[in-house]
Amino acid sequence: MSTLAHVFEEAGIATVALGSIGAHIQGTAPPRGLWCEFPLGRPLGKPNDADFQHRVLAHAFGLLRSPEPVVEKFAESITDDGTETMSCELPPRHDPSLHPAVDEANGLRPAYDRAVAKLGNRTGAGRTVSADDIPAAVQSFINVAEGTPWKEAGIPGIPARVAQDIRGYYETAALALAEHAPAAWAGARWFFTSTEAGRAILAARKSMADAGEKHPIWFYITPGDM
């Protein structure tokens, strides 16, 4: 981000860069930078809080008055302590002939569709795997977890991208099931700790790592600290 700011400024466009990681924005020293200590994925801080977002923008645009390069820190911080998890009910078992994770993915479809109808689809399924094909994609990771080499398991694309669509499908559905706007990362924690599909993906990732597959193939299936 800061690299682009340098480049755009050289072309004559005044820039203001928001940054969520202090060491990055201070280390790359954009012409004008505002370090906002917010969770990754939320550079304006709080979803559906226009007043908060305007405070961020007011500080950011205020940097345009500086006569020289400047990096400042926004006064308010939002921190994630790694504990809050989304709370939402998962669908009951419907088809015992299916793996629980596949049955679960099928059962979440109405909630997913409600969420997309209400919010649009910005991070749900569809980058590689359509919503219709999410259950089959979940099954492919189950296959890996149960020992099938990943190239033979039916994963319909690059594993990290397919996993991202599955996680996106679940987190989007969860927004329709939960009665609250989740804190940052609460949806991801819910997916990987509370759902059958999340556990299947974690197991597949471990299976791929244990099999000696190339690091990027399995590492980026989940957030890097998992």
Binding site: N48, L57, N121, R122, P182, Y220, T222
Partner: peptide, 30 residues
Amino acid sequence: MCGHWSPNFDATGIALDLNTVFPIDRLDEL
């Protein structure tokens, strides 16, 4: 749509509110 490849960000913020990442409505207000 958010086509970011990294899994290392919270996706629910932008799912709930585009302005969390792309504050186009806030700019229109300004």
